[in-house]
């Protein structure tokens, strides 16, 4: 059986890649994809912990979290579409948006 540390390290690497991408990428769609990576890192943790403790709560939480992430991305894409109609770009760091970058 694969030790639980392997899953946790995989999750941590995914989370780090996602966080790095979300903070450095300038395209809003790519940033949303990176956020999805971060969410899935947490899901891997949940499934691994749930499987190792034979507790059902981990799997339940993953189902909740996947549906929440789907809703969030749906709303996020709609908002990006709305902004795209206005500005004709999904880049976050063009001149108008420079003040909006954190």
């Amino acid at each position: 059986m694969i030790p639980i540390e392997y899953y946790l390290v995989l999750g941590a690497i995914l989370f780090a890649i996602g966080a790095y991408g979300a903070m450095t990428k300038s395209n809003a769609i790519v940033v949303l994809m990176c956020i999805e990576l971060m969410l899935n890192a947490a899901n891997i943790n949940f499934v691994a912990f749930g499987a190792f403790t034979t507790d059902i709560m981990g799997q339940v939480f993953v189902i909740m979290s996947i549906s929440v992430a789907a809703a969030e991305v749906a709303v996020g894409i709609a908002i990006l579409l709305n902004a795209y109609k206005m500005r004709k770009t999904t880049e976050l760091d063009d001149e108008q948006l420079r003040t909006l970058r954190w």
Binding site: G18, A22, I35, E72, A83, L92, L100, W102
Partner: peptide
């Protein structure tokens, strides 16, 4: 756009 991206990061 800013709200949804920062909110998504905070969720993650």
């Amino acid at each position: 756009v800013k709200y949804v991206i920062i909110g998504g990061m905070s969720t993650a």
